[in-house]
Design a protein around this nucleic acid. Structure first.
Lengths: 168, 168
DNA sequence: ATAAACTTTCAATAAATATTGAAAGTTCGA
DNA sequence: TCGAACTTTCAATATTTATTGAAAGTTTAT
């Protein structure tokens, strides 16, 4: 099999996965292409390889930079900008987690804290049930946070890793 | 504040969150409404409360049942079907994780195992880089799996929980 | 100051996805 | 067996979201 075919297949798959998780398909595809590439690529390289328009590549590249998944590079003697993906997969995943926490956990948190402090009028049992739901969601989110810290430790602390293994 | 207003706000927020994570808005809304409700609701209850068509509610309800987030209930003396959401948030989250693992991890895994065994033709360095990426992704997915097991333990093993806390 | 090389923007358009609702299907009691 | 009560289906439609590409903007070298 040709390396390039393999790359393209990877790009496509990564694209659908991203799409299923609410990440724009082109953004995921561009990311995949950069991940799979040995060296930095220019906007035009990307345009040609995955057949996307200039604007599309530009906008999604910027978004990838926002997510800290990609960074700009300059090649000496070249005016164009080149881009590379963060190579370490674990840090990459960490960045994705952080970004989504920031974007989507925040609205839930503010809703929860707002509703937890509200005096709710209505049938007593129903109110109790609703309040309990809010409490459980709050606990849940705290646990998620805890889990993401454990993950960090798992990532770079060998001792911790072994300890976990022992307990499994 | 009226309980019902609080419920509706929760329904809306849950809907957008779902949407951001690739879960159809109506599906997430229906789920939220059931979560927030003291008792089982009928298709028509849902239709009226969140203003959705019969077909929409029917299809998304079925999907929620597939995901094991909702179950059918029969009330004696009533012909209609009623629905309730799984009440325990942790188990709910577990089900969502399982479902998504099943749906979206599978394609990556098969791609990886396919590409790992391929003999790739192309520039030696580039091939090496690509192969390394595949390996790293594979490791990463294994670690994700490990993490989801840790979570299970975290969920119902008090001793484990304390241990983790000590180590933090 | 000019022009070439490159990047960014955004209104228009396309594509993907969700939703509707009427009609067909099912179930159940009499 | 019939019909009322309810559920399911799916082609048509609406909505949302992604993408395009031409034009405007920026940077740099001379």
């Amino acid at each position: 099999m040709q390396l390039n075919d393999a790359k393209m297949e990877f790009v496509q798959t990564w694209g659908s996965i991203g799409s299923a998780w609410g990440i724009p398909r082109s953004m995921a595809q561009i990311h995949a292409l950069l991940l799979a590439s040995n060296e930095a690529l220019s906007t035009e390289d990307v345009m040609e390889t995955i057949k996307l328009s200039r604007g599309n590549v530009n906008i999604n590249m910027r978004e990838l930079i926002n997510w800290r998944l990609v960074s700009k590079q300059n090649k000496i003697g070249e005016r164009k900008e080149f881009f590379t993906a963060q190579t370490d997969i674990m840090s990459m995943a960490q960045n994705i987690v952080e970004e989504r926490k920031r974007r989507e956990l925040q609205p839930v948190l503010s809703l929860l804290s707002k509703l937890k402090n509200e005096e709710l009028e209505g049938n007593e049992e129903e109110v109790a049930h609703f309040k309990q739901l809010m409490q459980e969601l709050d606990d849940f989110i705290k646990q998620l946070d805890q889990l993401s810290e454990i993950w960090l430790k798992l990532k770079d602390n060998f001792f911790f890793k072994k300890m976990i293994k022992t307990m499994s």
